[in-house]
Computed example of a mutant assay.
Amino acid sequence: MKEEQVIRQLAEEAISDKNSLFLVDVKVKGNTGNQKVLVFVDGDDGISIDECSSISRKIGAELEENDIMPGKYTLEVSSPGLDFPITLHRQYEKNVGRSLQVELVNGQMEEGELVEVTKDAIVLKGKKVNQSLDFEEIKQSKVKVSFK
């Protein structure tokens, strides 16, 4: 979708002065004239509401000025929630020390504490042994929330 690419570029520009922030995903949902634009940004040390607001203002101004979104739309800039899959290398690095649930491409599920992230793989500390999983083997990963 053309709009998503443009919004992705606008979001990258909006955070370009903040080295600790990174773009996770951009989604445009709904029908023309009544769309929801979702921009997910995260940071190495998290992201504040004020930072989300500032990014939203920058993107919104560009969308309006250049008439990128036809009709009505809603723009939301937020951090991805805990239920949002980890997709970027930088997100894995940020979550070292947390428990992950990893779905592999072959359908197998793995769980463990993320203890290391290399260029090509992650290492999970399991109940018995550490397990290395190549990124190409991973379909998706999620932080496992514990209520102990």
Rank of each mutant, 00 (worst) to 15 (best):
Leu75Cys: 13
Gly107Ser: 09
Tyr73Arg: 08
Ile15Trp: 00
Val129Gln: 15
Ser20Gly: 01
Asp42Gln: 06
Val145Trp: 08
Val37Gly: 06
Gln35Met: 12
Glu93Asn: 10
Met1Leu: 09
Asn31Tyr: 07
Gln108Tyr: 11
Val117Asp: 09
Met109Asp: 09
Ala61His: 15
Val117Asn: 08
Lys128Asp: 14
Glu113Asp: 09
Ser48Gln: 04
Lys144Pro: 00
Val143Gly: 03
Cys52Asn: 07
Glu65Tyr: 14
Glu12Phe: 01
Ile55Met: 04
Leu100Asn: 05
Asp25Thr: 00
Arg90Ile: 13
Lys18Trp: 04
Val39Gln: 03
Asp120Gly: 10
Glu93Gln: 14
Val28Lys: 04
Ile138Asn: 02
Ala121Thr: 11
Leu38His: 03
Thr118Phe: 11
Glu76Thr: 14
Val105Ala: 13
Gly71Lys: 07
Ile7Cys: 03
Phe135Thr: 01
Asn34Ala: 14
Arg8Cys: 05
Lys139Thr: 01
Asn130Phe: 05
Lys18Met: 07
Ser132Gly: 06
Gly97Cys: 08
Val28Tyr: 00
Gln5Asp: 14
Leu23Pro: 02
Met109Cys: 04
Leu10Tyr: 05
Glu4Pro: 02
Glu116Cys: 06
Gln91Leu: 09
Leu100Ala: 09
Val41Phe: 02
Lys127Ser: 14
Glu136Met: 12
Ser16Phe: 05
Ala14Asn: 00
Asp83Leu: 12
Lys2Met: 13
Gln131Asp: 11
Ala14Gly: 01
Ile49Val: 15
Glu76His: 10
Lys139Met: 07
Pro80Asp: 12
Gly30Gln: 01
